[in-house]
Simulated scan of single mutants.
Amino acid sequence: MSYEKELHIAQLAVQRATLLTQRVFHEKAKGTLSKDDNSPVTIGDFGAQALIIHAIKSNFPQDEIVGEEEASSLRENKNLSTQIWHLVKSASLEDETSERELGGPIESEEQMLQAIDAGNSAGGAHGRIWALDPIDGTKGFLRGGQYAVCLALISDGSVKVGVLGCPNLPVDDAAPLSADIDDPSGQGRGVLFGAVAGCGATSRPLGRGALQSSQAIRMKSVPDITDATFCESVEAGHSSHGDQAAIAKALGITRESVRMDSQAKYGSIARGAGDLYLRLPVRKDYQEKIWDHAAGEVIVKEAGGEVTDAEGKRLDFSRGRTLKENKGVVAAPRAVHAQVLEVVKSVLGSKE
C-alpha cells in the first residue's frame, strides 16, 4: 500500500489540531486537570483528540484508535466540556479549506465527547490501529516550552505512517538545536513532520487549510561521535539524566545535552538539528506508551536513523497500549547506532 491518503489526512488533521492547541498555549488559564496517574491534561488535549479522531473515523471508519485521553471527567464537568466544545467549533470555522476532507464539522458537544472516547482501542498485533497523543509533553506545554501533536498508523504491529505537529520548533530545518522559544509571538516557528515507511521523511511549515510545500529531511552524518549532540527529556522522571551523562562521557561527548519535552526530539534529530536521542529507564517496571514513540520512530527511521530499545530490540508496537516488551529508547543515525548502543548496554549493565 502507498498510504498516500492516510498520510494526507493525518497531516491535515494534526495541523488543524495543532492550531487549536496554539490558541490554548497562549492563554493563561488552560483548563488543567490531573489524571489518575497525577499527570496533567488540558482543554487543548481534549479538543485536539476530538478533532483528530473525528477526521480519522470519517475517512477510515473501520480503523481503531489508541488515544491518550477519555471523556469521563468532561461528562462530570459540564463547564469544562462546553469550553472545549467552543474551541472545537472555532477550529472548524478557522479551517474551512480542509473541512470537507476531514469529514465535516463536529455537529454537537455530545458528538465531540463520543469522538474523544473513540480512542479506547486496546491496540494489538492485528489490523489498522492509529496511535494518538493530542499533546505530547503537556508539562512543556504548560511551562511555555516544546510540545507536539502526534499521530501514527500501525498496521499489523508495524508503524506505517507518522506525523508530528511541533508548533514551537523553528521552520528552518538548518536552525541550531535549542529548547528555548526566543520569540513568544511564534514568528518563524511551527513545523509539520511526516513519513511513510519506505518512502522517506519530510518537513513543512505549519499553515492553515491546505498543506504547505514540503522538503525531504535526513539525519546528519556523524563521522566523529565526540561531536554529537544529545537530546533528552526535561523530566528526570521520564529518563535517567545520570545514565545519560555517563554514556556521553564514555563516548567522549562534551557538548551539553539539549533537554526538551515531547517527540519534538525525534523531529529534531530526524532533520539533523540534533544527533542522538536517549530515553533511559528510570524504573524496571515502567512501560512506555505507544503514542509517545510511534510517530517519531518511523520519522527517524525514514530520515536515515535507527531506533531500538536500550537492549537493541526493535520497538514492539504489537503488544497493546504500551511497549511492554521494551526498556528505554536509543535513536541515532544508522551508521553510529551500534556504537552508541554498545555504550548504553555497558553503562546500564554496570548498574546491575
Rank of each mutant, 00 (worst) to 15 (best):
A48F: 05
T229P: 02
G274W: 08
Q22M: 09
V222N: 09
T308Y: 09
A55T: 06
D45Q: 14
H26L: 03
E256P: 00
G145T: 03
R128H: 04
N326H: 04
Q146M: 10
R128M: 09
L51P: 05
V41K: 07
I225T: 11
V258W: 00
G274C: 15
G320W: 15
F46M: 15
Y286R: 12
R75V: 12
A152G: 03
R334W: 04
S203G: 12
Q339D: 12
A245S: 13
V163E: 09
S92N: 06
S73I: 15
T21K: 01
H26T: 02
K345D: 07
A250N: 08
E70V: 08
D227F: 02
G304I: 08
A13P: 05
S203Y: 11
W85C: 04
G103N: 02
Y286M: 00
Q22A: 01
R283E: 11
A10W: 13
P40H: 08
S72C: 13
T21H: 03
K324T: 07
G124R: 00
I43R: 14
F46V: 06
M219R: 05
A91E: 08
D117G: 07
R334E: 07
G104W: 11
D292W: 11
K265F: 00
K28H: 03
L278H: 05
V347I: 15
G124Y: 02
G165T: 11
A303S: 14
V330D: 02
G252Q: 08
N79L: 15
V149Q: 02
I9L: 05
T226L: 10
A71V: 04
A197I: 11
G242I: 13
K265H: 03
A246R: 14
Y3K: 03
S213C: 06
Q114D: 12
G188S: 14
T138W: 06
G328T: 03
H241T: 06
I154F: 01
S92C: 04
I253H: 09
L280N: 05
S203I: 10
I247V: 11
K351S: 04
L19F: 03
S178R: 11
K220E: 12
E68V: 14
L164I: 08
K284Y: 06
T254N: 00
A201L: 07
G237H: 01
G162D: 12
H26N: 00
S257V: 00
E311P: 00
L211K: 14
L132K: 02
A48S: 11
V163D: 13
Q339P: 02
A332H: 01
R319A: 02
G349Q: 06
A55H: 04
E101Q: 13
N79D: 15
A236C: 06
G194T: 09
E76A: 13
A273C: 10
E94T: 02
A295W: 14
S233R: 05
I247W: 05
